[in-house]
Design a protein around this nucleic acid. Structure first.
Lengths: 337, 337
DNA sequence: CTGAAAGCGCTTACAG
DNA sequence: CTGAAAGCGCTTACAG
């Protein structure tokens, strides 16, 4: 392994000068600098990050802790974070697929000594417990994670508002009896979408009563609900699935049984995954700017790390809410989507 | 910041003993160990990875360098790698979206001092150049990356074979005139898929002549080809798109123009992205076990890192080829898919 | 079973 | 503009 000592020896300077040169730091005499740079290149010198960060007390790396996410969502989020991180010359240490809170805790622990800060997404875990296990003073920003009295900055998608808007739209389309396929009970996002459904229903259709099936965000759970819908005597006018995958699953069961969407029954989803645009009928849904959440959360984390903005753990902070966007296609029965 | 010295002082032992205890290393007297463990927990001690890896010369981290990938593919790959990495207690430093070879080079450089090895995917870059910039002795495994005389282990999807199988299937379905929408010319995977098309055509339909449109793997390029197909006097029986996104784009143009797939013209793709299952008609395509490639490449890299298998840079190595799987749905005209 | 001591490869006041 | 020296927080032979 080549070290700055090797370079120093060859260049006949001190390691201090090599260090300065390689960091573009202080004013080194140009010819000396050139000599050093050349030798370093020749030797294909790779500085030891360990040594560097031991003394600077910076890793220039942030940890990204994710739950077991699926496809598009995960990559969009990472892309948003990665893009922002590149701009600040930060590295990304990622860890995903934590089945339970203990796995997540272990992941946090093993990341802790390697990063300058943490971006945590944990919509379905016991987040209070999780954050209580966070190392003291490690800057942390939460994404789509509910914490009771949060002292950590957090970014959350406006699941409540998106759901509410969707309901208003359905009501305007003339639907009177609107049912929901809810997501997992313990999932914070699912809860918010359900809350939006409930509140909107009370407000816009006070005489209509709630009709809720419990799903788990998978296509399969959409199928199952579809099967129940088929055998109902009196069906709702519209079904609002708490995510697109369940809507897609439900759609295929309904279509197979000969029901026409949206003519016999309207069906809408949430997330705007790529597939939703291509199915028939194209799915009306709610779009979430997930990569934007990644970038914003990263920016906010770096602000804390760079001490532009110190993390005040004595004071509660309101979460940053990210707006959603209604994407009207034809599955809701809209005339000119 | 708490260090092992703080713990040593409180536990009235040497830092050596604290270190041993925390690493479960040597035989420390149980009561001493317990005392130390308790104090460490109380102080929420987080070991400095920098100090640790400076002396052990290990980072227990591997770097994953990816091109600008889209959705599903990216996350599947990462998932495969992450899963395997967890098993070996390795961390993942990811960096993606490198527009050109210089950006990729910069990413490699900045990762080099932070990782024990590198997993590189670079299907569209000048890979010879890239690997020539790799730090000496940094274990590296390539994925879907072509290198002329490779001295690095590599894993590649059998794009040629998958394409060839698809062609055989189309011929068996009775198609005589088969056209291809090719991917980007500089993309290694696209080249292999095209080569499979060409060879199979020569073999199975020696009298038929090639018909190739140049696409770029985007939906848009599929649209454009679709528009050309519509206005042709004599159309092919079947179109083989080099990826699903182009097939989907092409399909929508054809369908909008009133052409029936597969009755008027068959259409197939490559990749088996999730959407392909849901469009109408469902797309016949080639499935690639991308997460498996991630796991295998990781295993192979770790074998080198752990010196179970030393990287021999004086000898060329054959790439590991990952089999693909034909997914027959109805867009190809198959009767009982 | 435990400790004193050396050292991993850098950076950075400090002095010149 | 440059160098000698201290030190970041750990691990690990070595000796006992």
């Amino acid at each position: 392994m080549t070290t700055i000592r090797d370079i120093a020896r060859l260049a006949k300077v001190s390691t201090a000068t090599v260090s300065r040169t390689l960091n573009g730091d202080a004013k080194v005499k140009p010819e000396t600098a050139l000599r050093i740079t050349n030798i370093a290149a020749q030797l294909r010198f790779v500085p030891s990050n360990a040594a560097r960060s031991l003394i600077t007390r910076k890793t220039e790396t942030i940890g990204v802790l994710l739950p077991d996410l699926h496809g598009e969502f995960f990559s969009e989020l990472i892309r948003g974070i990665d893009q922002a991180a590149r701009g600040k010359a930060f590295h990304l240490l990622v860890s995903s697929s934590h089945g339970d809170v203990y796995e997540a805790e272990a992941a946090i622990k093993s990341m802790a000594g390697r990063v300058d800060g943490l971006l945590v997404m944990s919509p379905h875990l016991n987040s209070e417990f999780l954050t209580s296990k966070l190392p003291l003073r490690l800057p942390t920003v939460l994404m789509n994670t509910r914490i009771a009295d949060s002292k950590l900055p957090s970014f959350i998608v406006d699941n409540y508002g998106g759901s509410y808007s969707m309901m208003r739209h359905l009501v305007r389309q003339g639907h009177k009896q609107i049912a929901m396929i809810a997501g997992p009970e313990k999932n914070f996002e699912a809860q918010e979408r359900l809350r939006g459904y409930r509140d909107a229903l009370k407000e816009f259709l006070p005489k209509s009563k709630e009709q809720i099936w419990l799903g788990d965000f998978t296509e399969e759970s959409g199928w199952k609900v579809g099967a129940q819908v088929i055998s109902m005597r009196s069906r709702p006018d519209a079904i609002f699935a708490a995510n697109d995958m369940m809507a897609i699953g439900c759609l295929s069961t309904l279509t197979d049984a000969g029901l026409k969407v949206p003519d016999d029954i309207a069906l809408v989803g949430y997330d705007d995954i790529p597939t939703s645009r291509f199915i028939s009928p194209p799915l009306t849904t709610v779009r979430v700017r997930i990569s934007e959440m990644g970038s914003l959360a990263f920016q906010s984390l770096v602000a804390i790390i760079e001490d532009v903005q110190t993390q005040n753990l004595d004071q509660n902070i309101e979460p940053h809410i990210l707006r959603t966007e209604l994407v009207i296609r034809s599955s809701c029965g809209a005339k000119n989507p």
